[in-house]
């Protein structure tokens, strides 16, 4: 089954890098590195050079913190989306927001994809995607409100819960008019999940792929990687890439990442192992 983002149609074996571009002063990993406008623009240029297929622009960090209202969120992202659209006409632009009001503003500025990272917290967001012909990422949070950490959350079967929630959200989005081939699902590692939940979601990712909706995974430098390897932020790249490779092998299509070049290499390697991509250059044994 194919899926569409922007003007591009992708096959079911596509493996795309979604580069994180934070317009925040306080996100956990980059700690404001692209808060400055010029730095954010440099980041977009860099990740495009490194092979990113999508940029995911976010104006609010996921973790708890100072409340950012919709006006401030728009100030952080809308003009920037317009700049990216004008500078990179073919680049797929995603915006990480749960708010329909922000979604509308960024779609008007040229966004192709609304990354609803908090799992339908604002039920109007899919209608905005539908109105603009944009794509939508549905995520599983276990029902927790935006910008909260999981606390003692349990599931009978975490993957069943993820699958049921995501399929329900995806069907609802489709019913509201989002094109079926512009809907992705994201198990949302760490969101509403402890480390065991995220590991199980990874191990059983194939069950989500089997729903037929294209799967996005957001793994980059997250706590479940850190707890698994006992590594602090800044030392989680290896674990992230290992999880990326496994997820790619199990059929995920989109990989939200901080380290684009490394992620691109991992995905290209997996694609070639899977027989979906020719090696770059073949000489060994063929001279």
């Amino acid at each position: 089954m194919t899926f569409r983002l922007g003007r591009t149609v992708f096959d079911s074996d596509a493996r795309l890098v979604m580069a994180i571009v934070n317009r925040t002063p306080d996100s956990f990993y980059d700690k404001g590195a692209t808060w400055d406008d010029a730095a954010a623009k440099d980041r977009v240029r860099l990740v495009v050079d490194q092979g990113a297929d999508i940029v995911d622009i976010g104006g609010i960090k996921a973790a708890p913190g100072v409340e950012i209202d919709a006006e401030e969120e728009k100030r952080r992202v809308v003009d920037f989306v317009a700049w990216v659209r004008g500078t990179f006409p073919d680049l797929i632009i995603s915006v990480d927001t749960w708010r329909a009001e922000v979604g509308r503003a960024v779609c008007e500025a040229g966004a192709d994809l609304l990354n609803d990272a908090w799992g339908g917290a604002d039920p109007e967001l899919p209608a905005v995607a539908a109105e603009f012909g944009a794509a939508l990422v549905c995520t599983h949070t276990g029902g927790v409100p935006p910008r909260t950490r999981p606390f003692r959350i349990e599931y009978d079967d975490v993957v069943d819960d993820i699958r049921e929630s995501l399929v329900e959200q995806a069907e609802r989005a489709a019913a509201l008019g989002v094109a079926r081939d512009r809907i992705l699902i994201d198990p949302a590692h760490d969101f509403g999940k402890n480390t065991y939940h995220s590991l199980e979601a990874t191990r059983r990712l194939g069950e989500l792929v089997a729903t037929g909706w294209p799967v996005l995974v957001s793994l980059s430098n997250k706590d479940f990687v850190g707890e698994t390897l006992d590594k602090p932020v800044g030392e989680r790249l290896t674990g992230t890439l290992a999880t990326t490779a496994v997820s790619a092998w199990l059929g995920a299509n989109v990989f939200r990442a901080h380290e684009v070049a490394e992620t691109r290499q991992v995905l290209d390697m997996v694609s070639s192992i899977a027989g979906h991509r020719r090696p770059a250059r073949t000489v060994r044994g063929l001279q």
Partner: peptide
């Protein structure tokens, strides 16, 4: 006569 010339062995860059 190198096999690298055969399309089935070419990479994205057609080294042969």
């Amino acid at each position: 006569g190198l096999p690298m010339q055969l399309p089935e062995y070419a990479g994205q860059a057609d080294a042969g």
